[in-house]
Amino acid sequence: TFELKGKVGKVVKIAEDHYLVESEGDKWIAYSDEKLSLGDRVMVVDVDGLKLKVKRIP
């Protein structure tokens, strides 16, 4: 299986209740415990079905 946990991506869209993150050339629906901005670099900390939980990284 394709393992996304630990992968790095970038926030490419902000929606009302989720983010769109591009990682490894694909776009994924993501959510975070912190507020993210367009262009933020993020790391995948968990995968919930087809949704990614991400956190901001420097």
Rank of each mutant, 00 (worst) to 15 (best):
T1D: 15
G9E: 00
L20Y: 13
A15H: 10
G39L: 13
K10I: 07
I57M: 12
K10E: 11
A15F: 09
R41E: 14
V12C: 10
A30D: 00
E16S: 12
D26I: 13
D33E: 09
S37P: 02
V44G: 02
V11C: 11
V44T: 02
E16F: 12
V44E: 02
K7F: 03
K5R: 03
V12G: 04
L20I: 11
R56A: 06
I29D: 06
R56N: 04
E22G: 04
V8Y: 04
D26T: 13
Y19H: 03
R56I: 06
V21D: 00
S37C: 09
L20H: 12
D40F: 12
H18Q: 11
I29N: 08
G39N: 13
K35R: 12
H18Y: 09
I57D: 11
K35Y: 07
E22Y: 12
E24Q: 04
I29P: 04
A30M: 12
A30T: 14
V42W: 01
D17W: 11
E3M: 01
E24G: 03
V54F: 02
Y19L: 09
W28G: 02
G39D: 13
E34V: 07
V54W: 04
D17H: 10
E22V: 08
K35L: 06
R56S: 06
Y31M: 14
D48R: 05
P58R: 07
A30K: 00
G39S: 09
D40S: 12
Y31N: 12
D46P: 01
D48W: 13
S23H: 07
F2Y: 03
D26F: 14
V11T: 04
D40A: 12
R56G: 05
A30G: 05
G9I: 02
E3W: 04
K51H: 09
K55W: 11
E22D: 05
G25D: 05
G49Y: 11
L20K: 06
L4W: 05
Y31A: 07
S32W: 01
D17Q: 11
K35P: 07
K10Q: 08
G49N: 09
M43F: 08
G6K: 00
K51R: 13
A30E: 00
V45R: 02
E16A: 12
S37M: 11
V44R: 01
T1R: 15
V45T: 10
G9H: 02
K13H: 06
K51C: 13
D48I: 14
L38Q: 08
D48G: 03
I29E: 09
Y19M: 10
V47Q: 06
K5E: 15
S37G: 07
G39W: 14
S23A: 15
L50R: 10
R56L: 10
K51V: 14
S23N: 04
K27V: 07
Y19V: 10
T1V: 14
F2D: 15
F2C: 15
G6R: 00
D33Y: 13
E16C: 12
V47R: 03
E34L: 05
K55E: 14
K27N: 08
E34F: 05
D26A: 14
Y19D: 01
D26S: 13
E3V: 01
D33V: 12
D46T: 03
V44L: 02
V45K: 03
A15V: 10
W28R: 03
W28A: 02
K13M: 12
M43T: 10
D33F: 13
R41H: 09
H18P: 00
L52P: 04
V21A: 05
L50C: 12
L50F: 13
V47N: 03
F2H: 15
S23Y: 02
Y31S: 06
K55S: 13
D26K: 11
V8H: 04
V21G: 01
D48P: 02
E16Q: 10
R41M: 11
V8A: 05
K53M: 11
K53W: 14
G49T: 07
I29H: 13
G39M: 11
K5L: 15
G25F: 04
D17F: 12
K27Q: 06
V21P: 00
E34N: 07
E3H: 02
V12T: 09
D26M: 14
A30F: 01
K7E: 05
L36M: 07
I14L: 09
V47H: 04
G39E: 10
L52W: 02
I14S: 09
L52Y: 02
L52T: 02
E16G: 11
L4M: 14
G6M: 01
K51G: 10
V44M: 02
G25Y: 04
K13W: 11
S37N: 06
G6V: 01
K13E: 08
D17L: 12
E22P: 00
K5N: 15
K27H: 07
D40R: 02
W28F: 12
E34Q: 07
G39Q: 11
V11L: 06
I29T: 08
V44P: 01
K55T: 14
V42Q: 00
I14M: 12
E24I: 04
K35V: 07
E22R: 07
V47T: 04
E22W: 12
